[in-house]
Design a protein around this nucleic acid. Structure first.
Length: 416
RNA sequence: GUGGGCGUAGCUCAGCUGGUAGAGCUCCUGGUUGUGGUCCAGGCGGUCGCGGGUUCGAGUCCCGUCGCUCACCCCA
């Protein structure tokens, strides 16, 4: 371990090349898929005024209460490393007057997020998410489209053991009324509930639906359901979303107990999980947030979106790492001019060939061995007297008069 | 924050009841009077997480501490 005193901070990790290739491929897949659906690239800073999250995500949420990396800048302003992407995008939507653009505004993003939690399998303090937001329309087809695209993405990425849970939270008002009703119901059955559920009864009674305690489950089986309390318009909206998903052939389970950890959700909420993960089974989640833009000081604007964790997608997919393109290796024989070798390198690249140059002072034999290890298709040996092009598959070797001819020979011998 | 597991070369690991550190892989060199993939040989590379204790002697036992990891909570 040779004095490796300095380490990546707890809950963070370095992306080594093999994993980097996997991540880049996933990102490209995401971008192609969402581009085709009209979602445009969008970036917000990795930190924001703390207020954006405190107000946007909700003061009572776990994220705001205990998971934010918050610090002060030199002017004493409170800033926070973004723990999620939706509130910042809504902030930007307001800031840039994007409600004046043709609606809906469809955006996609990709980048790092930060949550100060105890790390474990699939959970990090810095993690990456890709996500989309569609602002400015309450049309159920946007909810359905978002889910269909997410479903497509996860499948194309190869995520295994997927399950989609779907529900509707109605409006904040019905949610509040329902919450009171559920709380009252739970109080009547308090003695039958597990200690943890009792402890969270005031803060988040909906969590009781997730409990695996037998007593609690028995109580919850009879508990009132939020879906049964939805106002007509909300129930109608949900029915339309479901019909569109049915038409699209996306399988889902309606789960009245589905709770998302952020305050801003209204109407549709959903979550993809994978049983190929550890305890952190959530791969992606999202929903509609019709009040958020207004909450952040903008006009009343509906929105819907989702975010997917790229580490978790990769964990659920376990894909092979893509191979980099097979390069041409430029070897230097003893006495060969470094300038000649460099010129050959540039010429090969100019001809569109991925090329690498010997830069470690190896013996010719070592260079060939190295070329083989990196999967070179051909080696151009730069010698005192001229150039030799060696096809690494056949072992055939031919003379070349100059770099351009060497490039031609490489293309000839390896693109058949 | 709490609980379980683990911390020996860059990586994967071995090291029995304490006796003074090993293997495989990787990398470099050589076997090849300039030329790779197999094979052989050699070389580079170790504060045995850290601190303390017991002992003639500790990687091996005891205590503490730090870190990693899985899980609870919550979530991407």
């Amino acid at each position: 371990m040779a004095g490796a005193r300095l380490k990546a901070p707890r809950g963070t990790f370095d992306v080594l090349p093999e994993d980097g290739r996997r991540r880049e491929r996933l990102r490209r897949l995401f971008e192609e898929l969402l581009d085709a659906a009209g979602y445009e690239p969008f970036e917000t800073p990795v930190f924001e005024q703390t207020e954006v999250f405190a107000r946007g995500v909700g003061e009572t949420t776990d994220i705001v209460q205990k998971e934010m990396f918050t610090f002060e800048d030199q002017g004493g302003r409170s800033l926070t490393l973004r723990p999620e992407g939706t509130a910042p995008i809504c902030r930007a939507y307001v800031e840039h007057g994007m409600h004046k653009l043709p609606q809906p505004v469809k955006l996609r993003y990709f980048g790092p997020f930060f949550r100060h939690e105890a790390p474990q399998a699939g959970r990090y303090r810095q993690f990456s998410q890709l996500g989309v937001e569609a602002l400015g329309s309450d049309d159920p087809s946007l909810d359905a489209e978002a889910i269909v695209l997410l479903d497509e993405l996860l499948r194309a990425a190869g995520a295994r053991g997927l399950r989609l849970r779907l529900s509707s939270l109605g409006t904040p008002e019905t949610r509040r009324e329902y919450s009171d009703e559920l709380r009252a119901y739970l109080r009547r059955h308090e003695s039958e509930l597990s200690a943890e559920v009792r402890a969270r009864l005031d803060a988040n009674p909906l969590r009781a639906f997730d409990s695996d305690d037998p007593g609690t489950r028995a109580v919850m089986a009879e508990a009132p359901r939020l879906l049964e309390r939805l106002a007509d318009e909300d129930a109608q909206h949900f029915a339309e979303v479901r019909a569109l998903l049915d038409d699209a052939g996306v399988a889902y389970e309606v789960d009245s107990g589905l709770v998302r950890g952020l305050d801003y959700y209204t109407r549709t909420v959903f979550e993809f999980t994978s049983d190929a993960l550890g305890a952190q089974s959530g791969v992606a989640g999202g929903g509609r947030y019709n009040g958020l833009v207004r909450l952040l000081g903008g006009p009343d604007t509906p929105g819907v979106g989702w975010a997917a964790g790229i580490e978790r997608i990769l964990l659920a997919a376990q894909p092979e790492a893509p191979q980099p393109p097979a390069p041409v290796f430029v070897a230097r024989d003893e006495g060969a001019s470094g300038r000649d070798a460099f010129r050959v390198l540039r010429t090969l690249r100019a001809e569109g060939l991925p090329a690498q140059l010997e830069q470690a002072g190896r013996s010719l034999k070592g260079q060939l061995k190295h070329a083989d290890r990196i999967g070179a298709r051909a080696v151009v040996i730069v010698a005192d007297g001229g150039l030799r092009v060696r096809d690494m598959r056949s072992g055939e070797q031919r003379e070349a008069a100059d770099a351009a001819e060497a490039a031609r020979l490489v293309i000839e011998s390896t693109t058949r």
